[in-house]
Computed example of a mutant assay.
Amino acid sequence: MSLEKEALSTIPIWVHLPALPMEYWGERCIRKIAGLLGNVLKIDNATKNKDRLMYARTLVETDIRKGLPDEVFFTNEYDELKPPRREWVNKESQKDQTKAQIKQHHDNSETCETMAIQSPEGNIESESQCTTITEPRGEPHKTLQQGKNVRGLNKANKQAEVVHFIANHISLFSLLETKVKRQGIGALYQIICPSWCITYNLALQKGGMIIVAWRAEEMKVDIRFVSSQIIHLIVNPNVGDNFNCSFVYGATDKKERGIMLTELENIGTTVTGPWIVMGDFNYIANLNERIGQKSRLHEIEPLRRCMVNCDIHDMKSTGRFFTWSNKQRGNARVLSKINRELENSAW
């Protein structure tokens, strides 16, 4: 038996293929493309199920003696030469980058100059609603705009409306209550924002209640928490400081909504620097936020308690005050404000 050490020549590494066009997301295509780098051992489940469309991820066995190429090209079905963008995943460097981002966040927490955010939610019958929100510190930067809840995104006219909605220099947006099933996400992505990165909570909530999309060339996004009612991000724009951003869609069930508030409070304990929370909370926070039906103190206490515990408050905004209607007329009509935008004192 030989006790000499064998020279290590091959190692498995996780390879990311960012911004891979949807037509190449089949397992055979991914294996062929990643196969240019070595022996493909595995494709992760999120890639197989198309749960995360910001990049395809594969485990590839590579020969370290040859080194890693700077570029990899492949020829598509039209004999066009394509260079897939790729990143070599190094967990240690990711940790160092995270520490650097946290340090930068503390060093630059005085102001928060953000990219534009547009989040479709809230609906009064079929009318369009748009709330313009004042930027942090009152500086003349781009505005954050919160639009209307899409309430189903499977029809062409709804999709066209969203495409028009995000065409106005938007870099980060969220869609709520899309009602898009898993098999329809790829087609929706191609129609609405084919060059964007997206994430969603479809695996945790049937009907795709929250979709978040951003322009990767303008910002880096760290997805910190995803549940059936919340997607929480840390956003690092190319211009300006990092900020925390949470998109919420409260359940109709009272007990589940309570879980959402607990999750928000848990997120609040980890937040440093600017934080904005926006979406459909399915709660009112003040007695005057519902007309046509009596408001009671026990209905507003849960959200108000959460706001105090998280140290967040309503942002200054303009636009429609009531965001929901029961679509009735006359004395039977009920209007309420269940959509809102909240900020902490660092925003």
Rank of each mutant, 00 (worst) to 15 (best):
T47L: 04
Q97I: 07
R52G: 04
K179C: 05
I300C: 06
L233Y: 00
Q118N: 12
V221M: 11
S227A: 08
T62L: 12
A100N: 11
G258D: 07
W324P: 00
A285K: 00
Q146K: 08
G147Q: 05
C306L: 05
K148W: 11
L144M: 14
R296F: 15
P21G: 07
P194T: 03
P237H: 03
M307Y: 03
K179R: 12
I30L: 15
C130E: 14
F243N: 01
K95F: 12
E218A: 13
S195D: 15
R257K: 15
Q293E: 14
P12C: 08
G250Q: 00
W275N: 03
R85V: 10
C306V: 03
R340E: 00
W196M: 03
T272L: 09
Q145Y: 06
E341Y: 04
T131M: 13
V40D: 03
E263G: 04
T270L: 14
G186I: 10
M115Q: 09
E135G: 10
R224A: 13
D311C: 07
Q104H: 11
D70H: 08
E23R: 15
N201W: 05
K220V: 13
S227C: 08
N244L: 02
L68C: 07
R296T: 12
N149C: 07
I192G: 00
T318P: 00
N90S: 13
G207Q: 07
D311E: 13
W214C: 11
V248Q: 00
T10S: 10
I312F: 03
D241A: 15
G186M: 11
E77A: 09
R320I: 04
D70V: 05
Y249V: 01
K99I: 11
K155E: 14
Y249N: 02
R28N: 12
P237Y: 04
Q129V: 13
C245D: 07
G67A: 07
L37M: 14
S325F: 06
H298C: 10
E265L: 05
G258H: 00
D63K: 06
K327I: 05
D107T: 08
S126Q: 11
T47F: 01
L37P: 01
V72L: 12
N331H: 13
A34T: 02
P140D: 10
A100P: 03
K254D: 11
A216P: 15
